[in-house]
């Protein structure tokens, strides 16, 4: 059996801009998780703020956009590459 890999393959499978997008997506995800955290309910008090707009709309949206942006980051090739 012999391997048929392409010898002219660039050494890194992703493009520079793609990596940048990937880093950005990781930052978005981290930001989302930071915003998602906060105080919780306990045995004495039901804490309605666990369902605040920030924690159940903004934060998950940031995470989701981060996770989706990563897809773009992985496959992104600038024109001419």
């Amino acid at each position: 059996m012999q391997n048929r890999t392409n010898p002219s393959e660039p050494s890194f499978p992703m493009s520079r801009k793609g990596l940048l997008l990937l880093s950005l997506s990781i930052l978005l995800i981290i930001a989302g998780y930071v915003l998602m955290g906060g105080e919780g309910s306990n045995a004495h008090r039901f804490c309605p703020s666990i369902f605040s707009v920030c924690r159940t709309l903004v934060a998950p949206l940031l995470c989701l956009s981060g996770y989706l942006l990563a897809v773009v980051g992985i496959v992104f090739l600038p024109s001419g590459d």
Partner: peptide, 12 residues
Amino acid sequence: ARSCRWLILIAY
């Protein structure tokens, strides 16, 4: 060139 990125996307 860079076809491996599809494999990486699959892993993701």
